[in-house]
Amino acid sequence: MFEDVTSVTLHSALTGLARRQRVIADNIANIETPGFLAGRVQFEDALRTAVEAGEPGSAPVRVARSLEPTRENGNNVNLDREVLSNVDTGLRYQTMLRATDDKFVLLRTAIRG
């Protein structure tokens, strides 16, 4: 419906942040699983590059396994890092939702005149 750069960028950011929240939840759920390597979601640099190229919808959301040191059981999930990342991701998601809401308020105001 809305294919302008701002709308597509906001949608891409929300998609990446939602994916990060799911990966963080998976990391926390597997904190005691032997051999489990934490996942890390990366999309911000790709989104920035895609926006600069005028194609924000083409930004990939990548999930990579962490190469941080592991504990004796081969697991490298750090609960403190996951909690902080979850709070940061939640705040970023709220910010993107607010920006989306503000965009629709502006559109509604423009339509009403």
Results as ranks from 00 to 15, higher is better:
A53H: 06
D88S: 12
F104E: 03
D4V: 01
L14Q: 11
L91P: 00
A64H: 14
S85Y: 01
E55Q: 08
G113I: 03
T9D: 01
T100D: 04
F2D: 10
L107S: 12
A18D: 10
F36N: 08
L97F: 12
V77F: 07
H11P: 01
D102E: 15
N78W: 06
L14Y: 04
N30Q: 05
E82W: 07
R62N: 10
E82H: 06
F43R: 01
R40N: 10
L91F: 05
R20Q: 15
T49I: 03
A38N: 14
G57W: 01
V63R: 01
L97C: 08
T89N: 07
P34L: 08
P60N: 06
I24T: 07
A59V: 09
V61E: 13
T95F: 10
D101F: 06
A50R: 00
H11D: 13
N73K: 12
Q94T: 06
T89L: 03
F36V: 08
T89D: 02
G113R: 10
T109S: 15
R22C: 01
M96D: 08
D88H: 07
A59W: 02
D80T: 07
F43V: 00
L17R: 07
S12W: 05
Y93N: 03
A38R: 10
T70Y: 12
V83C: 09
E72S: 14
V23R: 01
Q21H: 09
F43D: 00
A46H: 02
N78G: 14
V87S: 11
R108N: 11
T6Y: 05
I31F: 09
D88P: 00
E68L: 14
Y93Q: 01
E32Y: 02
E32M: 03
A13K: 07
L10Y: 13
V105L: 15
F2I: 06
G113V: 06
L79F: 06
G113K: 09
G57V: 00
E72L: 15
L91C: 00
Q21T: 02
H11L: 15
E55H: 08
G16V: 00
L106K: 12
M96K: 02
Y93L: 04
F2S: 04
S66N: 14
T100F: 11
R19I: 11
R22Y: 01
T49S: 01
T89V: 03
L97P: 00
Y93P: 00
T9L: 05
R62S: 08
A64I: 14
L91R: 12
F2Y: 05
L67F: 10
E44A: 11
E52H: 02
A38L: 11
N30T: 03
L79V: 13
S85K: 02
K103M: 13
L17F: 10
G90V: 04
V87R: 08
R40G: 04
M96N: 09
L67M: 14
V83I: 15
Q94M: 12
V23L: 04
V105H: 15
N30C: 10
L10N: 13
V51G: 03
A110R: 12
R65H: 09
P34N: 09
D101G: 07
I28M: 12
D88K: 11
T9G: 09
P56G: 00
A25M: 08
V63H: 08
V41K: 06
M1I: 02
S85W: 00
K103W: 05
S85F: 01
R108S: 11
P56T: 00
R98F: 09
R40V: 15
A59P: 14
T33Q: 03
L79Y: 10
R22W: 02
Y93C: 03
E32A: 08
V77K: 04
L14R: 08
E55Y: 00
